[in-house]
Amino acid sequence: MQKALDGTLTEEERLAWQDWLQQHPGDLALYEEQALITRLLEKMPEEEPPAHLEGQIMRSIRNKQRNNHSIGQLIFQRQEDPMAPKYRWLLLGAAAIVIIAVVISRFYPSTPDSTTQGTIGAVQKADKFDSGQMSAGDVTLTDSELQQLLQNEVVQRIVADQKLMAALQTMDSKALAALQTLDGRAIEALQSLDGRAIAAMQTLDARSIAALQTLDGKAIAALQTLDAKSIAALQTVDAKSIPALQALDGKAIAALQSMDGKAIAALQTLDVKAIGALQSLDARSIAALQTVDARSIPALQSLDGKAIAALQSLDARSIAALHSLDARTIASMQTAEGKATVE
């Protein structure tokens, strides 16, 4: 019938179709109904867009270019898929560092004394940043914004941290290219970080940086979806969580990057208690959790410290079984005095 409606039947098919309709009056009625609608729809006129629309679109693009604070080309910017807040935080921290490094490389292109470190003006520029991966021309922040950024207390603390800056220097061109897609919103997010978050961030080591290097533009786009609530939640993550985050490998990162809006929405409902529970997870638990899907998140949110301890004894097979648990079962598990293992 579809081919008949589309007018794509061969002559042979058309004859067969006509025979069929003669013998099946129900189908004939249905076909005529569909054909009528098809013909009616074909009568609808096409409208011309208003003459001013094209100019209006191009103006908005130019405004976008002017207002965009991206480092690097806007063209490599945002995509839709968001990702886990916990991981976003890691990204955000690294992004902030890169922004700072770029700013420094622009404002302090030649360090007068390579042995002097500890203040913004004296930070030694990493060899990596001398390699042409980023140039002053890539930085599109305005001078006032740069000054504001440089004067930011958070920025000054990060720059003064030699270990962090050394870790930063392990970033390769791919990671830098990805991070260059960050826009002004990342700056705002940076400025919303408090001392605790910065302290946690300063524990990032070379391994974390290596994980970050697996990020693509999609992951970066996720960063830009952070809202105030997520930032606040992320600020509850402390240094203890960082080693757990560092246990994430390329596969886990890829899995996180595939999270859809529903899963993200679920993650954004995590409260301080849930964050606290998450912080008690060790590397083994993290590995097990990497197999958990979005459906399991609401159930996980009801877990307390005792349940977490029990969960830490589970292996991957048990985790698979856990996927079928609902919130009610979880509640009953929590009364089982640590005997809550799943066969």
Partner: peptide, 11 residues
């Protein structure tokens, strides 16, 4: 739509 197309050419 076109603003988004512009922003997302990278993807």
């Amino acid at each position: 739509t076109f603003v988004k197309v512009y922003e997302r050419f990278g993807s």
